[in-house]
Design a protein around this nucleic acid. Structure first.
Lengths: 217, 217
DNA sequence: TTATACCATAGGAAAAACCCTGTTCCAAGG
DNA sequence: CCTTGGAACAGGGTTTTTCCTATGGTATAA
């Protein structure tokens, strides 16, 4: 009976308590070891540079300060394509899932899954190279409607600033004052965003911003 | 050397993965055993009824579906005052912390603490009956401003329903239709809420609802 | 140099949101 | 029976938001 080398896992999550707990859980699994954790994407880059041993799998939280999951997975797929990234998040928001998968994640796990599912996912991602839970698979199918062309939909600096300010009790006129622009320009941003994001009103904008973690409370 | 009986911990969190991981972590601590977990407050009530052995400490997540942390801790302090409740949440929002503590929680832990801190908290809450991290202690002090009179500010059923619907792209007229009320009545709710909550517009309402976990995305 | 594209901006108008005050109905308490 | 209070709702006015279309300026690619 030859003892195989374990698969190395890295955890990226700003919630230390969760990360630490998850480590204990993973160490009860057969054939997996936790290499290290990182608090965010930037921290992970650091850790990768410092350590000779690369992780086989990275469990990556999406909403983090500093360098979030989207940026991180993009960096990883470009610089370390051999590492398999499993996204880990609480929201099963379709656009978020798709964005992660499109960015290069090999799977998407909801944080409310049963611990056993995690072991299953880890094994499957090592064997097959990807893992998709039923729920996510469903979302994937559901998303195959041809519309799209949603080429990553980039928001410009000013639009993001506006969005953040719009997530407050400020009036557009006040926002214009803060941003040092004409109210009419602000109205232009608003309209452009409504079109791009397929939303109907300011509340929709706030919701979109929160769901996509462009703004936060 | 007499072996003491361990302290029993129950975990209430709708994120199974987190709960499961946390269990593994706690079992590495000296003198603590996890009795069971529950997905939410209602589930916890169930578990408490079924099991003869009561937990000594409950680690309680705040934002859960069905029966959230606030309701749960209230129920616990009324029905099982001997159980020490530690609230567990990611947000360090002042109003949320205060609301939990006022509702009877013996401590408030942010989910981004170091795992060692959890052990410290568990030990301290068993010894002293309470635990407050530096951060929370600060918030507590900060909150001792005399203003308040914030007599728990109860929202009625209809107001909450309205609030939830207002957190969407629906128009007030549409909300009125859904709730089967006159648009003018809806306007009344709106006004009443704006006054009670000291907010200026619908975005403010959405933000309030989210911060106080009355609504969720 | 011209076409193109993008940005800030404007006019004008309809719809929705916001605000204040007042009426009716009904139930509960004195 | 009368009073009080809350809930639903209306009238009517002001402010913001929303929507559509259009123009001048500047950078840039052709």
């Amino acid at each position: 009976m030859t003892k195989k080398q374990p698969n190395y896992v890295a955890i990226v999550d700003d919630h230390l308590l969760f990360a630490g707990s998850l480590e204990k859980l993973i160490e009860t699994f057969n054939g997996f070891d936790v290499l290290y954790h990182a608090k965010n994407g930037a921290d992970l880059q650091q850790k990768i540079k410092e350590n000779a041993q690369l992780p086989d799998i990275i469990l990556l939280d999406i909403n983090m300060p500093v360098m979030d999951g989207f940026e991180t997975v993009k960096w990883l797929t470009e610089n370390h394509p051999s590492i398999k990234v499993l996204a880990l998040s609480m929201e099963d928001d379709e656009t978020v899932i798709l964005r992660m998968l499109r960015s290069g994640a090999k799977g998407y796990l909801l944080k409310d899954i049963h611990p056993d599912k995690l072991e299953e996912a880890l094994n499957e991602v090592m064997e097959k190279g990807y893992y998709h839970s039923e729920k996510v698979a469903e979302t994937l199918l559901h998303s195959l409607r041809p519309d799209d062309s949603s080429v990553d939909l980039v928001l410009k600096e000013n639009e993001i600033t506006f969005m953040q300010l719009a997530c407050s009790e400020m009036t557009y006129k006040e926002i214009a004052a803060v941003m040092n622009l004409s109210p009419k320009t602000i109205d232009g941003y608003r309209q452009e965003l409504f079109n791009k994001l397929h939303i109907k009103n300011r509340v929709g904008l706030v919701i979109y911003g929160l769901k996509n973690e462009i703004i936060s409370l």
